[in-house]
Design a protein around this nucleic acid. Structure first.
Lengths: 191, 191
DNA sequence: GTGTTTCCATACGGTAGGGTATTGAGTTTT
DNA sequence: AAAACTCAATACCCTACCGTATGGAAACAC
C-alpha cells in the first residue's frame, strides 16, 4: 500500500541526480566551485548523504568528467551524421551550435572543463578525447566534400579553435554587426 | 654611509615585487590560486607584510589586472607598428607569438585571466580592453593592405579567436604535423 | 509484523585561508 | 643620538570546506 501523505517529503537522490547538480554548479561557477557542501546545499540535503553516493570529492569529479565526455561524444556523432550532400550544412550547424547564445550553459560547461583541464590530468584526458572525436568527425565531413586530407585536417582544427576562442572573447569593439562578421567567418572556414 | 654587511638579509619588498609574484602564481595556478598566504610564502615573508602594501586581497587582484592590461596593450602596439609593406609579416608574427611554445607563461596568464573574467567584472573589463585594442590594431593592418572594412574586421576577429582557441585544445589527434597545419591556417587567416 | 537495506542528519575534527592588531626590527630623517 | 618611518613577524579570530563516525528514518524483503 502506498503512503502518499508525504509527511515531510524526504528528498531521495541517486548518483545521477548528484552528478547533474554538479554539472549545474560547474556551468555557473567553474570547477573550483564544485564543492561537496555547496552541492549538498543546492540539492537540499547535507553532505552526510554525499558520502554515501561517492567515495570522496574526487570520485564526484571523475563522474562529472565521464558524464560530460560521453554526452559530448554522443552529440558530436549525432550532429555529424550528414546525409550525402548535406556536409556543408552540417559544418555550418556545428559552428552555430557553439556560437549561438541559446546554448549558454553548454558553452559555460565547455569553458569550465577546459580551464579545469589546465591543472587536472583527468579533465585534460576528457578534453583530449572529446577534441579528438570532434576533429575526426569534422574532418570526415570535409573529406566527404572531396577535400584533400591535409586541408580537411587544417580546417577542422581551425573550426574548433575558432569556435572555442570566440566564446572567450569580450568584444566591446566591432559591436555593431558581430552576427554578420561571424557568418562571414563561418563561410570562410567551411568554404 | 652604507651598511653593506647584511647581517640577516631581511627580505624587503615593494608593491611591484608583490605584483610580479602574483603574476607568476596566476600563470602557474590560475586566479583561484592567487591567495595572499600562498603568495607571501612564495616571497619568503608572512602575510603580515602583505597587508601593509595592499588593503586586501581584492586590492592585489586589481593591481594585477591593471599590470596585465597595460603590458598587453603596450605589446600589441609595439608588435603592430609595421612599416608599409610589412603588414602581412606583422600579422603572421602576431599569430606565431601565441602559437609558439616559447611564450608558455604569457599564454598561461592569458588563459588564466580569461577564465577569471568569466566570474569577475574587473577581470572582464581588463580582457575587454585588451581585446578591443588587439582587434583594432589587427584590423588596421588588414586595412593597410587594401582590404574592405568588413572583411578586415572579420579576419581580425577570426585571428584572435583562433589563436586563443588553439591554446585551449588538447590535440592528441592530428599529432603528426600540427606545425604544418597551423602554418596552413595562419596563411588562410592572413590571406 | 520483524529485519535489512537505503539514504539522510548531526556532530565532530582537521586544514586552508582572509583579515586584524600588535609588536618589533631596520632604515631614514632631523 | 633620538625620533619617525618602513616593512615584516606573531598571534589571533573567523569562515569555508573535506572527511568520518554514528545514528535514525524510510522503504523493502520476508
Amino acid at each position: 500500500m502506498e503512503t502518499r501523505i508525504a509527511k515531510a517529503a524526504r528528498t531521495v537522490l541517486d548518483r545521477d541526480a548528484w552528478i547533474k547538480g554538479a554539472i549545474a554548479i560547474l556551468a555557473e561557477g567553474g570547477a573550483q566551485r564544485l564543492r561537496v557542501e555547496v552541492l549538498a546545499k543546492r540539492l537540499g540535503v547535507t553532505k552526510g548523504s554525499f558520502y554515501w553516493h561517492f567515495k570522496d570529492r574526487r570520485d564526484l569529479q571523475d563522474a562529472v568528467l565521464e558524464f560530460w565526455k560521453d554526452g559530448r561524444i554522443r552529440d558530436i556523432r549525432k550532429q555529424t551524421q550528414a546525409e550525402p550532400g548535406g556536409e556543408a550544412a552540417a559544418l555550418l550547424h556545428t559552428i552555430e551550435v557553439y556560437a549561438s547564445a541559446r546554448n549558454r550553459k553548454g558553452i559555460a560547461i565547455e569553458a569550465a572543463v577546459r580551464d579545469w583541464a589546465r591543472h587536472d590530468p583527468q579533465a585534460a584526458a576528457a578534453v583530449e578525447a572529446v577534441d579528438a572525436e570532434r576533429l575526426t568527425c569534422a574532418c570526415r565531413l570535409f573529406l566527404a566534400r572531396g577535400m584533400a586530407q591535409r586541408e580537411a585536417e587544417a580546417r577542422s582544427l581551425l573550426l574548433y579553435a575558432y569556435v572555442f576562442g570566440a566564446s572567450l572573447m569580450r568584444h566591446g569593439a566591432f559591436t555593431n554587426d558581430i552576427a554578420s562578421l561571424k557568418s562571414w567567418i563561418a563561410d570562410l572556414i567551411s568554404h
